[in-house]
Design a binder for these strands. Structure first.
Length: 294
RNA sequence: GGUUCCUUAGCCAAGUUGGUAAGGCAAUUGACUGCAACUCAAUGAUCAUCGGUCCGAAUCCGGUAGGAACCU
């Protein structure tokens, strides 16, 4: 059985996963886009290396912050790890907050090899022009992508002109079913009451600062040239701006809190609608379901 | 005590010669197939309050409440 635990940041997924890991004697595969990175610990609320449970986690610290990483790589890494673990364990836990990664890993999303992905020629075009262009190359994609969503419009154009089939066709070819067909998958969604969640996020950010987030970022900057993806992490990009003198520490902290709250909200929407989850407001309720029958 | 000024959605804030209120942030809801801790969309006020002038007032006049500055 595959037990997938999802929830917004600060909901308490990690401790849940630990409890279930004990109960089922199961390893935990990380499904968090930034815990993938080495040396990004405090800001991603990653379990400590010194923690006795650390060894049970997979796909933590597998990439250097100087490298970029994306869904495609995650899909590959996940599936490889899953197949290896499957030989040794009856149950496996997946735990994380990156909905897209989970969906791509578990469903039959299909990513082709990327060829020439230079889109600099598109950058000067207006949203309208881009949209018109996409309409010609993949008019169906136009139905689901909003004109103002530049990033997605450009990506769809890029797919259409570098691959044999465009984005819509690729999606239509998929069966939209679980990739590992003989596996039972349980999606459990921990969704605490909003107010509690936000309060928890606020105090957690304060703790990160107390635990030395600023220092972690300094060391990170010394050691690596951060990749575009690694730089995008909430908590890191804000501290970088603070270190550059663009913000006071106070403003920086408030910004991290705000962005984290916004992010948590988006996560909730994703889990609610994009994955077939059973939703629970408390850890206890979720555990009860997770430990049922077996 | 006196003079002047201010009061627009949870917060910041536009509002032109009076013709039924820009925008930003937050919040809520939603989208989501290669940067996803990303990117994007939708949703709210009758303008402190009472009264007056006017066909019509957030915009003009007066009272009340709250606030700011200066003066004594």
């Amino acid at each position: 059985m595959l037990i997938v635990i999802v929830g917004p940041t600060g909901s308490g997924k990690t401790s849940l996963a630990t409890t279930l890991s004990d109960f089922y004697h199961a390893p935990i595969i990380n499904a968090d886009a930034f815990q993938i990175y080495q040396d990004m610990n405090i800001g991603t609320a990653k379990i400590a290396r010194s923690d006795k449970y650390y060894q049970r986690h997979y796909l933590l610290d597998i990439v250097e912050p100087s490298q970029s990483y994306s869904v495609k790589e995650y899909q590959e890494d996940f599936r490889k790890t899953y197949l290896e673990l499957k030989n040794m364990y009856q149950n496996i836990i997946v735990c994380g907050g990156t909905g897209l990664y989970i969906k791509a890993a578990l469903y039959d999303y299909c990513f082709e090899d990327e060829k020439d992905n230079d889109v600099s020629d598109l950058e000067s075009l207006s949203n309208e022009e881009l949209y018109a262009l996409l309409k010609k190359m993949d008019s169906k994609a136009t139905e689901t992508i909003h004109m103002n969503n530049r990033k997605r419009v450009i990506r769809a154009i890029q797919i259409a002109r570098t691959h044999d089939i465009n984005k819509s066709e690729s999606i239509d070819q998929q069966a939209h079913q679980l990739f590992f067909k003989d596996e039972t998958v349980k999606f459990l969604f921990l969704n605490p009451n909003r107010q509690d969640l936000y309060e928890n996020i606020n105090t957690r950010v304060n703790q990160m600062i107390e635990n030395g987030l600023v220092n972690e970022v300094k060391e990170l900057l010394n050691k690596y040239e951060l990749s575009k993806t690694a730089q995008a992490a909430i908590g890191y990009k804000e501290v970088i701006e603070y270190l550059e003198g663009k913000d006071t520490l106070e403003e920086c902290i408030e910004l991290i809190k705000k962005r984290t709250r916004n992010y948590a909200k988006r996560q909730v929407t994703f889990f609610r609608h994009q994955l077939p989850c059973l939703e629970f407001e408390t850890k206890e309720a979720l555990l009860k379901e997770a430990m049922k029958n077996e």
